[in-house]
């Protein structure tokens, strides 16, 4: 028996899209920054996401630290691992050719996959196991943790927006993104900024991993699909345009929820198996119709 969709169902879809979109935006935002500034593809991104999540799980569930120190520890270890990634697998190569790190970070992603299996074992892990307490807003069911995650993501993005658009440091970052050599010739030390930006992307990725570990669960083979979705968002958003990428991350996540969740024309549902193809179709669609992306800027054309 099917009945017509209720307004509450659309609210639920919106809530679902916000949850999935917040996660995607965290990961894609950092990636877009790295691509915009360094012109480098970091294929080990998904593994760095998992590493941040697993570190938090380990601190909270094995060492039994309280949740907040565990989260901070997870972010810190994500940052350290990203720094290491930069120094060993990106920094020595990207000046020669910006596609070299594509190869080195794929190799690194495979090593990290193996390392995480050894360190954290193959079974799924959850930072906060069990059932979360849910409540209803406008007919949409959502848990306290999810509300906090959505809000924290927003706060993180707003804080980043402030730094990026209103501070001296942010102006230097944008200068490096938009015209690397002009920035250099003004005396802006872009090598240091590159490193900082890469590490910031790792902190955002780690935050995404913690998000997954709290809201769902972590498993070691989860990394590659995460990387692919983040790339879909930055390609669709206009390569190097960080706000375009963040917008598209929310958009793709929203589309995934709507595609499968809506009773189309009151007649049929799209099978759930097609949900994950949305991101890939998005890439193909944009490459065909608008290779420069939804919000392309002239600052970097790949």
């Amino acid at each position: 028996m099917r009945r017509a969709a209720q307004p509450s169902e659309y609210m639920q879809l919106l809530a679902n899209a916000l949850i999935a979109g917040s996660l995607a935006a965290l990961i894609a935002g950092g990636l877009a920054l790295v691509y915009g500034v360094l012109g480098v593809f970091n294929m080990a991104l998904g593994q760095l996401v998992l590493f941040g999540g697993y570190s938090t799980w380990w601190l909270h569930q094995v060492v039994h630290l309280p949740l907040i120190p565990s989260v901070l520890g997870g972010l810190a270890s994500g940052a350290l691992m990203t720094w290491f990634t930069f120094e060993i697998f990106v920094n020595p190569f990207y000046k020669h050719h910006r596609f070299l790190p594509l190869v080195t970070t794929i190799a690194w992603s495979m090593i990290l996959d193996g390392m995480m299996l050894l360190l954290f074992e193959e079974r799924p892990r959850s930072i906060l196991p069990g059932l979360k307490k849910t409540f209803e807003i406008q007919g949409a069911r959502i848990s306290v943790e999810q509300c906090i995650l959505i809000l924290l993501t927003l706060v993180a993005l707003l804080a980043f927006a402030y730094v990026f658009h209103r501070t001296s440091f942010g102006r230097k970052l944008r200068a490096v993104v938009q015209h690397d050599s002009a920035a250099l010739s003004l005396g802006i030390n872009s090598a240091v900024l590159h490193r900082v930006i890469f590490i910031v992307s790792g902190v955002f990725a780690g935050a995404g991993g913690i998000f997954i570990g709290i809201d769902q669960n972590l498993s070691p083979t989860f990394a590659f699909p995460l990387t692919i979705k983040a790339y879909a968002a930055i390609i669709a958003g206009g390569k190097g345009n960080i706000w375009g990428a963040i917008f598209c991350a929310y958009l793709i996540a929203g589309l995934e929820q709507v595609l499968v969740g809506v009773h189309w024309f009151g007649a049929f549902y799209v099978p759930a198996g097609y949900q994950q193809t949305v991101a890939l179709l998005f890439i193909i669609f944009f490459l065909l119709l608008k290779p420069s992306g939804l919000f392309s800027s002239q600052s970097r054309t790949a």
Binding site: Q12, L13, Q216, T221, H263, Y269, A272, Q276
Partner: peptide, 22 residues
């Protein structure tokens, strides 16, 4: 009767749909 890709962790849109089923 739905099938999700291996490794799926987000079933929320399916749960929303499940509300329509008895």
């Amino acid at each position: 009767n739905e099938t999700s890709e291996p490794g799926t962790k987000d079933f929320r849109s399916l749960m929303t749909r499940l509300e329509d089923a008895e």
